[in-house]
Design a protein around this nucleic acid. Structure first.
Length: 813
RNA sequence: GCAGGAAUGGCGGAAUCGGCAGACGCGACAGACUCAAAAUCUGUUUCAAGCAAUUGAGUGAGGGUUCAAGUCCCUUUUCCUGCACCA
């Protein structure tokens, strides 16, 4: 009997040996085919690693280990996304520099990752908060600036009063702050934007060339929200109906063909036309009161679909329907958003439920222009024949009528085709300390000037107090030696930008840095990028699809356009993992007390058990609750694996068992590729059950088994490999040995069991050769007593035989 | 409201070019070992009826196609995810 397996000792032993041998080092320009596997590098929080990290990393870990065994030059790197609010908030609380906290957390995280035995190439590790890294984040920012993709604008932005910080749209989804989950308010602020909307079409088109699951593609598509429509100008008139020269109100619509049905217009409360014609507006007080009221509402409240529409009619201004020539009233209402389209709409109450509700409330005329429905009850939003619409009358195809109307409007110079996006430009500055300083200078003479490249990195200065200022400015604004500088253009006195970049900046290009992490001449050497890029397989969370994934694809497309990278898309393939829930089926959280600490699991059951379990617990992409009992099942499995050495006594291959071995090689190889890790592990469990039943196995059987299991449980298998007398020099690791090949001809069973049905119901089974003839199969079936019983006294109508699958005899009485 | 996905034993989940539903694991039950327990090993385990051979029912619900449906088609319910007064 072999000595008991000591996981703590064995796991440490191999982790040390692999590290000393540099077993997982990626070699630049190696002749072997390259494979770049990537996982989302962690934010090094003080809480340490979460079991979710283990699951997220295990998929690419298994693939990386398999690829090495298949002879690939594998790049499987790790680093830290270390700028961000949690470290800063902790710094404020404890009055410790975030740099110190961050480096300490990184150390802790690194140790935890190493304890699990992930085969990262640690020589490429970096952290986004270190100057040698953020120098290049700033450099890319300057390139964006240089190419006109950075602009400053005073507009309504999302602001989190709790974090005292401006947020991008992506960071305030559902009207909640991404960091603290409190309500976000809309505030007019002067902020820096990145023109991500310039890349909207490229980001959409790029999806056609990558291997992402449809769910991810769909989510990106709906986030970008491209819509094609028409811009139409309406002549504005004064209270008496006389046109105001050169004054038009432009709207955006996807249904310009309903123009004959337009009976009023609505503008957003923030629309500039209001202030411009303040003098004309008779009921200015009412307008202003309504404006104040809607400004109080949060974005969330305003975007709640409410049946009861509110608004105020603007007295003293009206518009002219360009096709009917009729005067129509203009309203303000907060169901129209300033941030989409032009902030003004043409209202077609007969065919839009919101406009319908509004018209009913304010007693406005409703003109039906599409036949169908019952507009005395509700708006008709379906398709149908155009009516009451002049030259469009009789058209039944939506596309045709839109086309025809647009042609007319274009000809008359009052309308044109246009595209709108739901996605907005990326609000890019944060009024906080722990981030990359934005390398821009405000010069009273020259305006905004870039910090010269040779002055990068623009270092984050030390401050006494990390608290954001009451004035809404970053702590950097309180350091005169940082703020005051000379303008690089004119040499005159100037002031630095004091805001920092958002959390997502550093992660928008980190996968490029892994190709060449220590380069101080460029963000990465072009040749190395050409060798390693694109990332072959990137796994990460679904929650990053409309944030990090979108942002990094944007930066990458930009870098491609300016010739800095060799591929338009950064990630050839993207997958995601399902969440690990607490044992109670709820999301793990400290307050619920259902958090599992991976460190405890490694200590108690071993890293191999933890790794195997997170992949065995269910479908990789689905959420599944944690079960300590199930985890123990995986521990039991590995203990049985360790006992296999005792079974390794056969000198000759058992032919039946060999078929199973060959099939298992195929199954595990294929399942890993399709990320069906749970069934791959199940196949190995099935095989070990067969080993136990057979009683003895050959050295070949054991070797194959260890190799197949190695990516999941690398330590125990490596130990057993050594105990088998392999790896004599201590460097010929199992984890770098050749992946087993299967012999297709040996995967065929000599006999198969197939079900025999009578009228579609299984009445017995027969054992026959898989390629056995129809006649032989039928003969065997008739001999089966239960089948014979059901055939007795009947007439056979039809016999269906699918070799290796089923035999169905259809009879009638 | 729109888009995408899901629903299978006590539980996590297998099986979708239509072909023996419930692989594998957990739990439960029984047995072996033990003074005993744990661990380990062996067996049973979808439900109902039966001593048993076996029979009937069964993949959210209702229809349909087919020799054969978890899988395909139509209708429908519930849940999850994303987007949403988007003009």
């Amino acid at each position: 009997m072999a000595k008991p397996y000591n996981h703590a000792e064995v796991e440490k032993k191999w982790q040390k040996r692999w590290e000393e041998a540099g077993a997982f080092r990626a070699i630049d320009f190696d002749k072997k085919p390259k494979w770049y596997g990537l996982v989302e590098f962690p934010y090094p929080s003080g809480a340490g690693m979460h079991v979710g990290h283990i699951k997220a990393y295990s998929s690419i870990e298994v693939l990386a280990r398999k690829r090495r065994m298949q002879g690939y030059n594998v790049l499987f790197p790790i680093g830290f996304d270390s700028f961000g609010l949690p470290a800063e908030n902790y710094a404020i609380k404890t009055n410790t520099h975030p740099h110190i906290i961050t480096e300490k957390n990184i150390e802790h995280f690194s140790q935890q990752l190493k304890d699990v035995g992930f085969s990262f190439d640690w020589s490429r590790e970096f952290a986004t908060s270190r100057p040698d890294y953020y120098k290049w984040t700033q450099w890319i920012f300057l390139k964006l600036f240089e190419h006109g993709l950075v602009f400053r604008s005073k507009t309504l932005v999302n602001y989190c009063p709790h974090c005292k910080v401006v947020l991008s749209n992506e960071d305030s989804q559902g009207g909640k702050c991404d960091i603290c989950h409190s309500d976000v308010v809309q505030m007019p602020k002067d902020v820096w934007f990145l023109r991500i909307t310039d890349y909207a079409d490229k980001l959409l088109e790029g999806l056609n060339h990558v291997d992402y699951p449809d769910s991810i593609k769909q989510q990106e598509i709906s986030w970008i929200g491209r819509s094609e429509g028409t811009f139409v100008k309406f002549q504005v008139a004064d209270g008496q109906g006389s046109p105001i020269p050169d004054e038009t109100l432009e709207i955006y619509t996807t249904r310009c063909d309903t123009l004959y049905g337009v009976t009023f217009m609505v503008v957003a409360p923030e629309h500039p036309i209001l202030d411009k014609y303040r003098e004309n507006i008779v009921n200015w007080d009412a307008v202003e009161a309504y404006r104040a009221e809607s400004a109080k509402k949060t974005e969330f409240e305003r975007t709640q679909l409410v049946k009861d529409k509110t608004g105020v009619r603007i007295d003293g201004l009206c518009a002219v329907n360009p096709i009917t020539g009729k005067e129509i009233p203009i309203f303000i209402s907060d169901y129209v958003m300033m941030g989409y389209g032009t902030g003004a709409i043409m209202a077609v109450p007969a065919h839009d439920q919101r406009d319908y509700d509004f018209a009913k409330k304010f007693g406005i005329e409703i003109v039906q222009v599409i036949r169908g429905g019952d507009i005395s009850k509700e708006a008709y939003t379906g398709d149908g024949e155009m009516i009451n619409s002049g030259f469009l009358n009789g058209l039944t195809n939506k596309k045709d009528s839109i086309e025809k109307m647009r042609e007319y409007l274009t000809e008359k110079g009052i309308g044109h085709k246009g595209v709108q996006y739901r996605m907005k430009d990326w609000a890019f500055n944060r009024q906080r300390y722990w981030g990359e300083p934005i390398p821009l200078i405000h010069c009273p003479k020259c305006g905004t000037v870039a910090v010269p490249e040779d002055e990068l990195p623009l270092r984050l200065p030390d401050v006494e107090n990390f608290e954001p200022g009451q004035d809404g400015k970053s702590p950097l604004a309180r350091i005169p030696s940082f703020v005051n500088c000379t303008c690089p253009k004119c040499g005159g006195p100037a002031k630095r930008e004091t805001d920092t970049m958002p959390q997502w900046a550093g992660s928008s290009w980190y996968y490029l840095r892994f190709c060449d992490p220590h380069n101080d001449k460029a963000f990465a050497d072009r040749k190395k990028l050409e060798y390693w890029m694109p990332v072959d397989h990137y796994n990460g969370g679904m929650e990053h699809v409309t944030r990090h994934l979108l942002y990094s694809r944007f930066w990458h497309h930009f870098l491609y356009d300016i010739g800095e990278v060799n591929t338009p898309e950064p990630y050839a393939k993207r997958t995601y993992q399902g969440m690990i829930l607490g044992a109670d089926g709820e999301k793990m959280s400290k307050s619920k007390g259902n958090v599992v600490d991976p460190e405890d699991i490694v200590r108690q059951y071993g890293a191999d058990t933890l790794r195997t379990y997170v992949l065995f617990m269910g479908d990789y992409g689905s959420a599944a609750p944690w079960s300590e009992e199930s985890l123990k099942g995986c521990k039991r499995f590995l203990d049985r694996v360790y006992g296999l050495t005792d079974l390794c006594t056969a000198s000759e291959e058992n032919p039946q068992l060999d078929v199973e071995v060959q099939k298992t090689i195929r199954k595990v190889s294929e399942d890993i590729e399709s990320m069906k890790f749970n069934t791959a592990i199940a196949a190995l469990m099935t095989l070990i059950n067969s080993f136990s039943k057979t009683g003895s196995i050959t050295r070949y059987d054991l070797t194959v088994f260890l190799k197949l299991l190695s990516p999941f449980a690398p330590h125990i298998t490596e130990e057993m490999w050594e105990e088998m007398g392999e790896n004599r020099d201590g460097k010929t690791f199992l984890t770098l040995s050749a992946w087993p090949e299967y012999d297709e001809s040996k995967t065929k069973d000599a006999v198969v069991k197939i079900g025999v049905q009578v009228n579609g119901k299984v009445r017995g089974t027969i054992e026959i050769a898989p390629d056995c003839s129809r006649e032989e199969a039928l003969a065997a079936a008739r001999k089966e007593s239960n089948v014979a019983r059901f055939l007795d006294g009947t007439t056979v109508v039809k016999e269906i035989y699918v070799p290796g699958k089923i035999l169905n005899i259809v009879v009638k009485k």
